[in-house]
């Protein structure tokens, strides 16, 4: 959005008429014009974005833990390389998303402090453990798969920096999804023990993956406003159904069973119906009572705290370099002046 509101700001009318600003903002959003960091935006819009983008960034970095858990034990060098590259991508996603969030006037340090203090969330899915090697495949196939279904519409999000970050991230997530699928396929077609390992992983990850789309539409707290702001474009249930429709035929090719006896084709709707989701478990995990909530946060805090002296050293060194540069610069100025 560069025309109306930015011009108003440049002309110094920015404070003149809040109603006009709000109206221009609403009109721009309705016209699918991208909002950029320097544009005027309602505080509630900014707050919603900060909350959502920070949660997304935190999910990328907490999400490194369950997968990094298997880097040292990957059963072939090729798989080790793929997994390392994936975990590295997730760190990269964290970086883009923190930078994108910083365009809203918050700092990464501040966001990390809030994560460590438990005041900002990350995706609940990462509170489940990776117990076997097959979990790495199940995460790629189902968790990255669900993330893509959620995130592809975000590439058209009304906030420019978020939308652009998502374009880049979605490309990499789709690699992760295919690699996870391919890992599971190798297991499923491998020895009976490998097949059992793959089935067990899918049994444990299927339902939590469906929960990644959030509560059912009639209970979703933030949905309506986010839709109006073009941050969100589809309802939770809509995206969840889309995901199920993608997974069912893939599971068939994999030769693995999705652990839902009620899963069946709905002729009328042209999609699959799934059985009831255990929302009590979802709420409990959200509340901190998942299998790994405590470990994930503790691990994150420990990494941050034990790295404090390193960050301090980098800051102190940079300050000394600046000081030295300034001293040298002064000398040069004086010479030039003389």
């Amino acid at each position: 959005m560069t025309t109306t509101v930015t011009t108003a700001q440049a002309d110094g009318h920015a404070t003149a008429d809040p109603h006009a600003l709000a109206a221009a903002f609403d009109a721009a959003v309705a016209d699918e014009v991208r909002i950029e960091p320097r544009d005027w935006m309602p505080d509630a819009y900014r707050d919603t974005l900060v909350r959502q983008m920070a949660q997304h960034a935190h999910s990328e970095i907490i999400g490194m833990q369950p997968e990094a858990n298997w880097i040292t034990r990957a059963p072939s060098l090729r798989r080790k390389a793929i997994l390392m590259a994936k975990v590295q991508d997730e760190a990269g996603h964290g970086l883009y998303l923190y930078s994108a969030t910083e365009t809203l006037g918050v700092s990464r340090d501040d966001l990390l402090d809030k994560l460590h203090a438990g005041r900002q969330r990350y995706s609940s899915i990462f509170n489940y453990p990776t117990l076997t090697w097959a979990d790495v495949g199940a995460i790629g196939w189902l968790v990255d798969g669900a993330a893509i279904t959620n995130q592809v519409p975000l590439c058209r999000c009304s906030y420019g920096p978020y939308a652009r970050a998502m374009v880049r991230i979605c490309k990499e997530e789709s690699f992760h999804q295919r690699q996870g699928y391919e890992l599971l396929l190798a297991l499923s077609r491998g020895t009976p023990e490998q097949h059992a390992m793959a089935q067990d992983a899918v049994n444990r990850w299927w339902w939590p993956s469906l929960m990644m789309f959030g509560p059912p539409d009639d209970e979703s707290a933030h949905s309506a406003q986010s839709m109006a702001w073009r941050i969100k474009r589809h309802s939770n249930d809509e995206l969840r159904r889309r995901f199920v429709d993608i997974c069912v035929p893939q599971a068939e090719i994999l030769g693995l069973t999705l652990p839902d006896p009620d899963l069946r084709w709905n002729e009328e709707r042209g999609g699959y119906d799934h059985g009831p989701i255990d929302w009590a478990e979802f709420r409990e995990v959200l509340r901190g009572n998942g299998p790994c909530n405590r470990e994930r946060l503790e691990r994150r805090r420990a990494a941050h705290e034990s790295g404090a002296w390193v960050r301090q050293a980098a800051v102190a060194y940079a300050a000394k370099q600046r000081e030295a540069g300034r001293a040298a610069g002064h000398g040069a100025d004086q010479e030039a002046g003389a």
Binding site: I61, I71, V87, A91, R299, A303, S306
Partner: peptide, 19 residues
Amino acid sequence: LGEWAGNAPVLEEDVALTN
């Protein structure tokens, strides 16, 4: 170095050490 993934002092180092 793979043992560092997710445990580095800053996110940039998670990327660099894994790289």
